[in-house]
Design a protein around this nucleic acid. Structure first.
Lengths: 149, 149
DNA sequence: TTGCTCCTCACGTCACGTGAGGTGGC
DNA sequence: TTGCTCCTCACGTCACGTGAGGTGGC
């Protein structure tokens, strides 16, 4: 595994915006726009000012797209979800020094509530799609019956 | 069942744009915009130029919203789906005088193909949401386990 | 030096939101 | 005549798309 670019100055193993966009299935413009809104920050910059993205950055972009396309959330709502997930991650990371047991419990309950709320949204959407599917299957059956005349 | 408005001139039983928008869960602006794009035409107009919508019009609006919010199609794609559904409806309505049996079969096969294509899109989306749900359930289980310490 | 990729404006687009200013019918 | 709803422009917004003009590093 050789370093592909010796001039990156501390950005070894990170992806350029073009490579990151291709991997994440979005445009470079979208990545810059998410950054402008504070949804994501590239893990590094070269001395020339070029953005460098890590694998963790790519996972975050995938999460944004998932919340956008599957749930139809706007970027403002997604910012809220990401904020709460970041908080939950910090709690887990610093579990043993995250204040009193009482404080930890409060944070966990908050995380539980937000996740349960998101779950309800997802479930409603899935049920809607299931009903849609059933309707389409009924239509398909009718068309096939008409073809067998 | 009295006629609610004696001055409508042939628009009895039809809804104003305000009532139609409220029933369909969209704004008046959205209804006018769909019309501008040719997705829907109100069943009537009063002599004063006001739009009047039928129950069938409302079903069409509901269909547009369903394709938008559940599947994430844009209005151009929705226009295509509606066109093909309108064609299929015409075929069913004029089934016995829709040309030769061979011609009828061709139209049915076309309808079958478009519906099957739509079904594949819906199924993929539903599966994506099911995976999302499973992930959320795993998170919830972890949070609950952490709360039981 | 030549390509290719990256950078930052900045204007365009889609699906409406939101007034501005005027008309219609109980 | 007074409210309320409707009408048609027309400009604003969100999430980018799409060049314009310039820089960076193999």
């Amino acid at each position: 595994m050789g370093v592909s670019d010796a001039s990156e100055g501390g950005c070894e193993g990170l992806l350029s915006i073009g490579a990151a966009a291709a991997r994440a299935g979005v445009t470079e413009r979208a990545l810059r726009y998410y950054q402008e809104l504070g949804l994501i920050e590239p893990s590094g910059r070269t001395s020339g000012g070029m953005r460098r993205y890590s694998e963790t950055d790519l996972e975050r972009v995938a999460r944004i797209r998932e919340l956008q396309t599957l749930l139809g959330l706007n970027l403002d709502e997604i910012a809220g979800v990401l904020r709460s997930e970041d908080r939950a991650g910090q709690i887990r990371a610093a579990y043993y020094d995250a204040g009193t047991p009482h404080e930890r419990q409060r944070l966990l309950r908050e995380s539980l509530e937000l996740t349960a709320e998101l779950r309800a949204t997802v479930e409603a959407k899935r049920d809607g799609l299931a009903a849609f599917l059933a309707d389409l299957d009924a239509r398909l059956a009718k068309i096939r019956a008409a073809l067998d005349d």
